[in-house]
């Protein structure tokens, strides 16, 4: 029986932990937050079929309990040393762990929308992020403006913190486009009379069912898609939000008022990534995500021996991709420890 430390108990960490435990390994999950399940826990329903997110994360959390995995929450790795095939990890709780392998599945964090100040997040009321909307939906199953009214006009802004050189993120976060389509439909399902707009650069409907969902949003629900980036937001005289954009397909500048603005915030490496990269001496790209030794075949192997990578710490992924990657990482670790 070998000892494996998994850093990050989100979707990837939980799934990999389960596979490794079934093989009889001793798995320790180290989680920075006070709960396991990662970012998915903050989601209400998932694309493309509006399935409840809890249907996905609850079994993952239950698995870990059933497998009797040791889970350290509110804990981070402070330093790591590697000698004689053993990784010695010093944790924030003062404990020292000697393990045979380490799996980094530190995941992503949602882009902080305050950094796009021109969109007014934290400045104007009723400017929220996609993550906020999920939380609101999960708690209330309804959406209200700060004045307690039903929103009559809602705009979704794509690519907030993604594909934006000015905030330093040049990559696409992959899941926001389809999430916007899903959330736009959800608003229309709640309030069929509301006008819903999506302001996009490109629509990246890359996976199975996505294109159909996009069509459905237009044909069945009447969501309006405008190709143009949001330039700035201001408060209008009637206390709504005035947004300025451009319809680039018609070449016309646009200015209109909305009751609610939803910013589709992208994925960024977690704040832990820098520390982990230094302590384990592993590669990061210019975007801050970890880079495996081989991007096509051995995509779970890092530069450091016995340190493996899984999930969104390597870049944006959806849930199915993350789970597949976690299983692949577990398999790689099992072979390595043989």
């Amino acid at each position: 029986m070998k000892k494996i430390a998994i850093i990050g108990a989100g979707v990837a960490g939980l799934e990999a932990g389960h596979v490794l435990a079934r093989k009889g390994h001793n798995v320790i999950l180290i989680e920075q937050k006070n709960t396991t399940g990662g970012n998915v826990r903050n989601w209400d329903r998932l694309f493309p079929n509006q399935r409840e997110a809890s249907e996905v994360y609850q079994p993952l959390i239950q698995q870990a309990v059933n497998d009797k995995l040791r889970i350290l929450t509110d804990t981070v790795v402070m330093s790591a040393k590697y000698e004689k095939n053993t990784h010695r990890l010093t944790l924030s709780n003062g404990e020292t762990l000697n393990v045979d392998a380490v799996l980094i599945s530190s995941g992503f964090r949602v882009f902080d929308a305050h950094r796009k100040e021109e969109y007014g997040y934290g400045i104007y009321h009723d400017v929220i992020t996609s993550a906020d909307l999920e939380k609101i939906m999960a708690v209330n199953q309804k959406v209200r403006t700060t004045k307690g009214k039903e929103p009559k006009r809602v705009a979704f802004v794509h690519c907030v913190g993604s594909r934006d050189e000015k905030v330093g993120n040049t990559y696409c976060s992959k899941v926001c486009c389809v999430t916007a389509v899903k959330q736009a439909i959800e608003i229309k399902q709640l309030y069929p009379d509301a006008e819903v707009f999506c302001l996009y650069m490109d629509l990246r409907m890359y996976d199975r069912y996505f294109e159909d969902l996009y069509r459905e949003a237009q044909e069945k629900y009447g969501v309006t898609f405008i190709r143009g980036r949001l330039s700035e937001v201001a408060e209008s005289f009637d206390d709504r939000l005035q947004i300025k954009t451009e319809d680039t397909l018609r070449g016309k500048p646009l200015k209109f008022n909305v009751d609610m603005l939803v910013l589709m915030t992208g994925m960024e490496p977690t704040s832990l990534a820098e520390l982990l990269a230094t302590e384990f001496n592993i590669h990061r790209g210019d975007d801050g995500f970890f880079t495996p030794e081989d991007e096509h075949v051995n995509f779970n192997i890092s530069r450091r021996e016995g340190v493996f990578l899984a999930g969104t710490c390597k870049g944006p992924k959806n849930i199915a991709e993350t789970i597949a990657d976690a299983r692949s990482a577990a398999e790689t670790i099992i072979n390595y420890l043989k």
Partner: peptide, 9 residues
């Protein structure tokens, strides 16, 4: 300043 509305506010 219109792009940093916190200031004008």
């Amino acid at each position: 300043t219109h792009l940093t509305p916190g200031i004008k506010q």
